[in-house]
Amino acid sequence: MAGSVLADSAMEHYRGSFDNRAMLLPIASSALAIAADSRLASGRVTGASPLTASIHAASIAVGAAGLGFHTYNVTRKAGGISWNNLFYRAPIGAPAALVTSGMLGVAAQALGSGASYLGPLPLLSGRALAGFTALGLAGASAEAALLHFRGAYHDSFMWLPVTLPPLSAAALARAAMTGRAGWITTATLAATAAVGLFGMAFHAYGVSRNMGGWKNWRQNILAGPPLPAPPSFTGLAIAGLGALMLIRRFARG
C-alpha cells in the first residue's frame, strides 16, 4: 500500500508541478513507511518501536489532511461537486490510501510486537482487521468506479475492479461479524490480489496506446491510466488474507 501511494502521489503531484509544498508530504511519509515496515518485516526490529509508530501516525495524519485538501480542490471550482470536477480535479479519495497504509502499519506493528502490546485492540482475533480491510476495499473500488466511469468502461476488463473487490469486501465483512472464514472469502481475496497485478499490466498497455508509446514515456505515464493505482487492491487483499489467517487461528484457540 505504501509503495502504491508513493509512486501514485509522486506522479500525480509532479503532474501538478508541486503547486503546493504540502504535496511533498505524502511522498515523504510513504517513503518513510516503506523503510520502517521493511525493517519490521525483516525481523531486525523486535518489540514496539516509537519511531515506527510515529511514522505510521504521520501517514494517517497526512492522508487525512490530504482528504481535506482534495475535497477543497474539488469544491472550490465552479460547479462544486459535479461530474466534471470529480473527474478532472484532484482525485477526492486518493489520500485515503495513505490513511489505510498507516492503519495497516499500526496493526502490523502491534501484531508483530506480541499480545502485551495490543492493549484493548481486538487484533488477535483478526475480526477488527478484517472489518477495516473490507472498508478499504470498498473505498478503493469506489474510486476505481469513478475513474473507469470517466473512461466510459470502453474495455470490459474495466468492470473487474468495480465488481470483484466489493464482493471480497462483503465476504470479508461477513467474516468480521461472524468470526468464520470460509473458502469463498479466501478465493475472492486471492482473485482481488490478482486483479491488482493484472490491472497494472492493463494500465501499462493503456500507456503504450498513447502517441509515441513507451518511447514517449515521460509524457504518456502522466497522460495514461495511473500505473501505481491497481496494486493497492493487491495490498488490501493481502491484508485481508492475513486477517483470515488470524480468524482461523483464533477460532482454533
Rank of each mutant, 00 (worst) to 15 (best):
M1R: 03
G3E: 08
S4Q: 00
V5G: 01
V5K: 00
A7Q: 03
A7I: 10
D8S: 10
M11W: 05
E12V: 12
H13Q: 11
Y14Q: 09
R15F: 06
S17I: 15
F18N: 07
D19V: 15
N20C: 10
N20E: 15
R21N: 07
A22H: 11
A22C: 12
A22T: 14
A22D: 11
P26R: 02
S29A: 15
S30P: 08
S30D: 08
S30R: 11
L32N: 05
A33D: 05
A33C: 14
I34P: 04
I34M: 11
A35G: 12
S38K: 09
R39Q: 15
L40K: 09
A48K: 03
A48E: 09
P50I: 01
H56R: 09
A57W: 00
I60E: 01
A61K: 05
V62R: 00
G63W: 04
A65E: 08
G68T: 01
H70G: 06
H70S: 04
T71I: 12
V74E: 01
T75L: 15
I81N: 00
N85Q: 14
F87C: 08
Y88P: 00
R89S: 14
P91S: 01
G93D: 07
A94V: 08
A96R: 01
A96T: 12
S101L: 06
S101W: 01
A107S: 09
A107I: 13
A108D: 14
A110R: 08
A110H: 02
S113Q: 01
S113E: 02
P120S: 14
G126K: 04
G126H: 00
A128N: 04
A128E: 14
L129K: 10
A130Q: 05
A130E: 11
A130C: 14
G131S: 11
G131F: 09
T133F: 03
T133K: 01
G136E: 09
G139M: 14
A140V: 14
A140K: 08
A140W: 06
S141D: 12
A142K: 03
A142M: 15
E143L: 13
A144E: 02
H148D: 05
G151I: 09
A152P: 04
D155P: 02
W159P: 02
P161I: 04
P161S: 05
V162N: 11
V162E: 10
T163L: 15
L164H: 05
L167V: 14
S168C: 14
A169K: 10
L172V: 10
A175F: 07
A176E: 12
A176G: 11
A176W: 06
M177E: 11
G179E: 10
G179L: 11
G179Y: 03
R180G: 04
T186C: 06
A187P: 09
L189Y: 10
A194M: 13
G196S: 10
L197D: 13
G199C: 06
A201N: 08
H203P: 02
A204C: 06
A204I: 07
Y205C: 09
R209F: 00
N210P: 01
G213V: 03
W217K: 03
W217V: 15
Q219K: 15
Q219P: 01
L222N: 13
P225R: 03
P226T: 02
L227I: 12
P231C: 01
S232G: 07
T234P: 05
A237T: 06
A239E: 07
G240Q: 02
L244C: 07
L244F: 04
M245K: 13
G253V: 12
